[in-house]
Design a protein around this nucleic acid. Structure first.
Lengths: 235, 235
DNA sequence: AGGTAAGGTCAACCCTGTTGGCATAAGAGC
DNA sequence: GCTCTTATGCCAACAGGGTTGACCTTACCT
């Protein structure tokens, strides 16, 4: 590797780019988020990002090992925003619900970015901070460690998984204007009752339900399950 | 559009390619699946697929509108395999559990393909067949239509979402040999108790739990919830 | 004030999806 | 069996992708 990535904290010389802007990991990530929103989930390219920053594309390699590394940094930024939008109350159920929605919300606020990053474990600082927080909530509620780990695992994976899935249709709807919300009316509702009796019978309900996320329902199921575990543990 | 895609059923002239193979949607999709396994989730390219088929890359455009269209066909193939691996018993709980695991399993059997397709609604025939089956199981159990749609939505999204997420780490592990299962020992277990007390306290449990999927647990939560709904409906 | 090297730029590499034009042989009609 | 049509294969080319190695310049340390 000819180029070496210098960690943000160790940066000292801040040389401005040709057109005057001074770069930083933060600025690059923010610009990338903006470009994702404007140009769609496949619209983030090194050349375009360079142009938006007023810098040569290759300059990015001074800050990130590659586009993949940048992608993980974007994911970590979303995790950080989720945590910033969350405050502890002390009640485990309230806190876990709020944190779940904060994570889900932070990702869905940037569907195109979520699509790229939600199914990836970054191992970066702010992702770790979220993990620590979740474990703290559960252990603080008095849940035994094995159950804590069990619920934590389901919680974090479920939140990310639904964020990724729902971001998909949301980003698609944004990008292809029409969106496939209409698909429930155009495709599914047209299926004949003879071959697809159950879809035909519930088509009107499906059309109303499918555009919404199943995440809240799944989250409540998880909270119910956790409460049951707590009672069982005699808390 | 210069080239027109002819639907598989309307194909009559089957002209062999230069090296003798006769193409079909089925053969292309199967070859694509094999290439994904061998070259990773980003290893499916028009040129490589063409080479593997002994055909010019542009020939693919006689069968699919583009790589995107091919991707959706791959997803539908996985859905079909899921349904093939499933048989009804008449007990809703058994059937739904088995179908969930069949879907999850079919996708995880091809992690690289799952990564590409799991977060996309294809609207193709075999995906629709799965939807019809799920709705049939729930309505057959006596669940009222609104609750049926509610559970169906959570079920299908949850299954796909977890498949995508878990396929991610599985594909990663395959592609980067090392795998990030070790990350729980290398990264998380090294965090000092002073700054991350909860991670430190549960590190040994996390290391054992994280390599496994949270899907079975989430699926059981959904089944529990459904059973409760059935009792509430007086079935 | 001078030297070092961080951090910017430039040109080039090989890859990608996709298309328009062309060639050929499969199968229909006789 | 012959002919004609056109479905379906191939070829060459395009724009745009990530990434790299060599080079230049200027911010900072001594």
């Amino acid at each position: 590797m000819a180029k070496q990535v210098v960690p943000e904290t160790a940066r000292q010389r801040r040389r401005p780019t040709r057109n005057g802007t001074v770069l930083s990991e933060q600025i690059i990530v923010e610009t990338a988020l903006r470009m994702l929103r404007e140009h769609g989930s496949t619209g983030l390219t090194a050349r375009r990002l360079g142009a938006a920053l007023g810098a040569d594309p290759s300059t990015l390699y001074r800050y990130f090992a590659g586009m993949d590394d940048l992608t993980r940094a974007i994911g970590d930024e979303l995790m950080g925003r989720a945590l910033d939008n969350w405050t502890a109350t002390g009640d485990w159920r309230t806190d876990l619900r709020a944190l779940g929605r904060a994570i889900y919300g932070a990702y869905l606020a940037h569907p195109q970015a979520a699509l790229l990053t939600a199914s990836r474990v970054t191992g970066r600082p702010r992702e770790i901070a979220v993990d620590e927080t979740v474990l703290g909530i559960l252990r603080g509620a008095g849940l035994p460690d094995p159950a804590t780990v069990h619920v934590y695992h389901a919680f974090i994976d479920q939140s990310l998984a639904f964020a990724a899935l729902d971001a998909g249709s949301l980003a698609l709807a944004d990008e292809a204007r029409a969106g496939d919300e209409d698909m429930w009316k155009s495709t599914y509702a047209q299926l004949p009752a003879a071959t697809h009796p159950h879809i035909a019978a519930t088509a009107h309900l499906l059309a109303r339900r499918m555009p919404h996320s199943a995440y809240p329902a799944a989250l409540e199921m998880l909270l119910e399950h956790t409460a049951a575990q707590l009672t069982r543990a005699g808390v």
